[in-house]
């Protein structure tokens, strides 16, 4: 009995020593802490942050978006809302029949040369407070007008800060690029 418990104690002590050895070995290994504000994690690639509009090829101030509302329809948490101005003036100038045909065509094609029938995007608001970052909107976009931002450093004092007006963000970004 005594021998057994003594043996158990010895084995136990040995297991502690082995554990200490592991700690000692790791003590020498390289540090894995990322000193955050001074350096950042290198692996942000691929992270899905909130969405951003992609500028069109011709004009960096204009989004690629054609206001087809696909993203609004698919969004599970209903956080995207967009409004578009229908090109009424030009429709009035033309006769009705060719215009509607034109519109169908432009919708079918991606980068239609006829700009007339393209609805102008008026506002594009993403309420990031409700977003669940599923990425369904980006995938459902027929023109690739949405992208993920890798801005993970968001924090603020009110929740209204995260109701993102993507159109004005796009214009700010374009301005920054020009400078």
């Amino acid at each position: 009995m005594i021998v057994k418990s003594l043996r158990e104690t010895m084995l136990g002590m040995w297991s502690l020593l082995v554990g200490m050895k592991v700690t000692a070995v790791n003590f020498k290994s390289t540090q894995i802490t990322v000193h955050y504000p001074r350096e950042v994690v290198h692996s942000l690639e691929g992270y899905r942050g909130h969405i951003e509009l992609v500028p069109s090829d011709e004009d960096p101030y204009k989004p690629k978006c054609i206001a087809c509302n696909n993203c609004v329809r698919i969004c599970p948490s209903a956080c995207i809302s967009l409004t578009a101005i229908k090109p009424k003036k030009k429709a009035a100038e033309k006769t009705e029949a060719p215009d509607s045909a034109d519109e169908v065509k432009t919708k079918g094609k991606k980068e239609a040369p006829a700009k007339k029938a393209k609805p102008e995007l008026e506002s594009f608001v993403c309420d990031y407070n409700y977003c669940c970052l599923c990425g369904l909107c980006v995938q459902s976009c027929p023109t690739g007008a949405l992208r993920y931002s890798s801005n993970v450093y968001l924090a603020g004092f009110t929740r209204q800060e995260f109701v993102l007006d993507l159109l004005s963000r796009l214009q700010n970004q374009a301005q920054k690029k020009e400078q």
Binding site: Y36, V40, V152, Y153, L154, A155, F157, T158, F162
Partner: peptide
């Protein structure tokens, strides 16, 4: 509430930023 950190879930960097806020 004093500070809001959006995200689903936010990355730990976001939480650190929240702490700074």
């Amino acid at each position: 509430v004093d500070v809001y950190i959006p995200g689903c879930p936010p990355r730990p960097e976001g939480l650190l930023e929240g702490l700074f806020q």
